[in-house]
Write a protein that binds this DNA or RNA. Structure first.
Lengths: 217, 217
DNA sequence: GTCTATAATTCGATAGAC
DNA sequence: GTCTATCGAATTATAGAC
């Protein structure tokens, strides 16, 4: 095919063509990897999803593993990027910070429901992926949020319990969505309504815990 | 033909031999499948773990899929079996039921940490597995526990929110253990101490939520 | 850069001896 | 029942034409 004709064709093509081939492959890889995990994903699936030939995948990314590493890095980044910003908004009350946090993850997981289970399950088989992103620990322990959390923690309970509670109440309903949908007998729309209600409820429940006199005994 | 009930005949053999070959394969399969998931598991791994030859796996279980189905059924069963009993102990207070429940799952997941993430991640790729175990929905909605939960639910909040909270606070710290251990900077022993503290804490926190005046607004 | 065709390897499953 | 050896399909990766 002549080069001039090729350019003309590109310029008049559909929206799909505004992404470079490299980007198309990466986006397709992200979609398929998140849906099926590393081992269950075939490079052919990614090529098909991207609308390109299988050989191009190796041309751009050398191997399935290299492509996966890139996707995984992206996902981890997206998972924790919002966290650092929100946890350091000085001046806000802990209830406000919590509502920001829960809202953020509700919207993130609503657009990408497989993101949390993907990260958690891939981490099981390869826990050392976390070592690279060691910044999370410092980001949390040095954050404004954690400072006021410690101050408000009742009695001698480890403040980390409350961090666990926040993440559990926020993330697990997405991780276990298929099971919880089944158990509650709700369809997608109804279940999503429940999830949305939790944006307001979770911060209040956490507030209750922080204000209570519960101790470990 | 494989004979499942022949195991006792070899009672005088060494410790490894008290399990029939069929059981050894199934136990090995359970271990490897739970650790790596279906796709990442090779039948050769299972054979090696069981200390038998690869051909025997197909002799006893026909295929990797059939073996996996058996293991999955077992795991699902174990996951929900304790539930039905505990949720129907009439006469107990909701706080007592919760403590029984959290204790049960703490001990179950402590001996098999990969069980919850295994079930959740395999369900993602194959949500129809749940349809077989449809009994969960009825077990919950018709249980004594759910009856008193509904009675104690404040205002007009969907009682299922509290079921989600219980499961989230109980299961998620196991599902996300690698990540939470990293973030909290604890080793296995310290993290386990935290998990153990939650046996007493989670029921109290749930009690707080049920007694509060929080509404959806 | 992109394609077709194929090499190289892995893996599930089976045949057949004992 | 258990083993060794191997087949056949699937899959990653590459060679080479355009």
């Amino acid at each position: 095919m002549p080069e001039s004709f090729k350019k003309l064709e590109k310029a008049t093509d559909s929206l799909e063509q505004i992404f470079s081939t490299e980007e198309k492959i990466k986006n397709a890889a992200r979609k398929v990897f998140m849906q099926k995990g590393f081992s269950a994903t075939r490079t052919r699936d990614i090529a098909e999803e991207a609308g390109i030939n299988l050989a191009l995948l190796n041309y751009y990314f050398r191997s399935k593993e290299k492509l996966f590493e890139l996707v995984m890095m992206d996902c981890m980044q997206e998972f924790i990027s919002g966290l650092k910003i929100i946890l350091n908004q000085e001046g806000k009350t802990i209830e406000q910070l919590l509502e920001d946090l829960v809202t953020h993850y509700y919207e993130l997981f609503r657009s990408q429901p497989d993101l949390p289970i993907f990260i958690l399950s891939e981490m099981r088989s390869n826990p050392k992926r976390l070592e690279g992103n060691l910044g999370i620990k410092e980001s949390l322990s040095k954050s404004y949020f954690f400072k006021i959390l410690k101050a408000r923690t009742p009695n001698k309970i480890n403040p980390f319990h409350f961090f666990m509670n926040i993440v559990s109440l926020t993330v697990f309903p997405f991780v276990a969505a298929p099971m919880l949908k089944q158990i509650s007998g709700t369809n997608q729309e109804q279940y999503d309504k429940l999830l949305k209600e939790r944006i307001k409820l979770v911060p209040q429940w956490i507030g209750l815990m922080l204000n209570s006199e519960i101790a470990i005994s």
